[in-house]
Computed example of a mutant assay.
Amino acid sequence: MYVFSNLVHMIRVWHRYQTSLRELSRLGDRELADIGILRADIQRVAWEAARVD
């Protein structure tokens, strides 16, 4: 049961990561700057957001 619940958790985290990554990538440089994110930081920010439960 633990393996299944861990797998479900990782799928949910991956889905949140992909959603955040897609949304942040659509923003322009000016919009990213307004929220304090550099384009180079998008993957890190998306991963941090995805891991929050």
Rank of each mutant, 00 (worst) to 15 (best):
R12S: 05
R44T: 14
R26D: 11
W47D: 01
A33Y: 06
R39A: 12
R30I: 13
D34W: 09
H15Y: 08
R30M: 10
R30V: 13
R16W: 02
V52C: 08
A50C: 05
H15T: 08
R44D: 13
R44N: 11
S20A: 15
Y2R: 10
H9A: 06
R26S: 11
D34Y: 10
D41T: 03
I35W: 08
D41V: 05
I42H: 08
R26N: 12
I11M: 04
D53V: 01
V8D: 00
M1F: 11
D29R: 12
A49T: 07
L38G: 09
I11S: 02
A49S: 14
D53K: 04
V8C: 00
E31C: 03
D53N: 12
R51M: 14
R30D: 15
D29P: 05
G28N: 12
R39V: 06
R16V: 03
L32Q: 06
Q18V: 12
Q43N: 14
Y2C: 04
R30C: 05
E23K: 15
H9T: 03
L24W: 02
G28F: 04
A49N: 14
W47G: 00
I37C: 06
E48A: 10
A40R: 15
L27A: 04
L7H: 01
L21C: 04
E31G: 05
S5L: 11
G28P: 05
W14F: 09
D29F: 01
L21R: 13
R39I: 08
